[in-house]
Design a protein around this nucleic acid. Sequence first.
DNA 1: TGTGACAAATAAGTCTGACTTTTTGTTCCC
DNA 2: GGGAACAAAAAGTCAGACTTATTTGTCACA
Lengths: 233, 233
Amino acid sequence: MSTPGRGLHGQVLDTLGPAITAGEYPPGSVLRTDELAQQFEVSRSVMREAVRVLESMHLVESRRRVGVTVRPKYEWNVYDPQVIRWRLAGADRPQQLRSLTVLRSAIEPVAAGLAAKHATAEQCAELTECALGMVAHSRGHQLEGYLVHDMAFHRVILTASGNEMFARLGDVVAEVLAGRTHHEVMFEDPDPAAVTLHVQVAEAVREGDAVRAEELTREITVGALQELDILAP
Amino acid sequence: MSTPGRGLHGQVLDTLGPAITAGEYPPGSVLRTDELAQQFEVSRSVMREAVRVLESMHLVESRRRVGVTVRPKYEWNVYDPQVIRWRLAGADRPQQLRSLTVLRSAIEPVAAGLAAKHATAEQCAELTECALGMVAHSRGHQLEGYLVHDMAFHRVILTASGNEMFARLGDVVAEVLAGRTHHEVMFEDPDPAAVTLHVQVAEAVREGDAVRAEELTREITVGALQELDILAP
DNA sequence: TGTGACAAATAAGTCTGACTTTTTGTTCCC
DNA sequence: GGGAACAAAAAGTCAGACTTATTTGTCACA
């Protein structure tokens, strides 16, 4: 997905971005544009463009007479989808997956409540279709098919909420769901209770029952938290 | 705040960014790098760097033989602090303020609950100090002083949650609070009930009462929603 | 000895011009 | 009418020279 190698500067970023987000250059490290250009065997103009992009993500700061210094993690634009992808691909993956799951647990129930009020007839139909697809692929190790419908389901919820900020988290949630299926090796079929909950959420949204949609979605996200052992006893 | 005019390309962005996010160039519009460079009276290299930044925000897409085309709003990186600032400064301000307030209402209660579990003694002290500052400035038209402590309060909550994604919303929430005080002309002193709620949240966090902290914060955010008439009867 | 001004070094920033590459649209021929 | 060759357009790349801000170090003076 996304856009692989859109120009030389993009190829540089594909290497430099993951390296920085993985912590290979500790905060405060100083890079020189000229040296980087030599290392990557590109012209300075290309390297400058790459640095500009990293700068706009608040991964680095460029100052005259000093160089390009790496910023501490807490200043990064951690909502940038590109940064999220880089971190999910590197050593940060577990922590990233946990913080994103917590984020999900805060957002999705509210989004579902709003979706119950604002979803169009078409969106309701889509939702039902996704839920049925999940049911159909819930047994017999059809994990990939299940995942596709699961991602689509949550994307529709977020979009149907009518809130642009929620809607833009669709990719992030999809990434988290995919990560769970692919990385946390899943041999078993999905939890039947979770499948049922999705069907019920679709129902609640269709009926415009915001409170129930929110509550049911909260149960789904609590399940996601439990899977990662994020929970206070 | 932020970094005003960090180089020529930054000055270009200060004009071009707001123009695009304000919708002055409708989605699908095609810009030519050379023309832009002439308009802004900068070299092509500088304009190219500016375009790269806009591209990394998914505001535009650059393609050979075509030019730089403006993307539809739903593809923008709306969590980029820079994009948020641009939109808050333009015609989009009301809608942006509304969607951000809804986002707040989803995030902050959960963050407060986590803060009750994870806040350090120092953070608890900061929180109490902020709450007391709010009380002290709650009467007699000391709106600026009140705002400072209000912003600090919510920033501490988000940071103390221990979740990096929540923490990074501190700037956004501060922006929303400032927007409410400055733009939605406030002549009156803040609602005493809201002030009390902040004090109680500080208490709950100090006592480690996650459920109460979450519930009280929810009341605060519901109040924020009501102010903007975001509510279903 | 400390301090302030001045000078040198350094790395980013800027500009220009030439060249390459990709994509698109047109035209011409079968 | 369809497909292949061709031409044009705009971004992409590179190299080199020059500018400017910032830091650091030095030296003289109080």
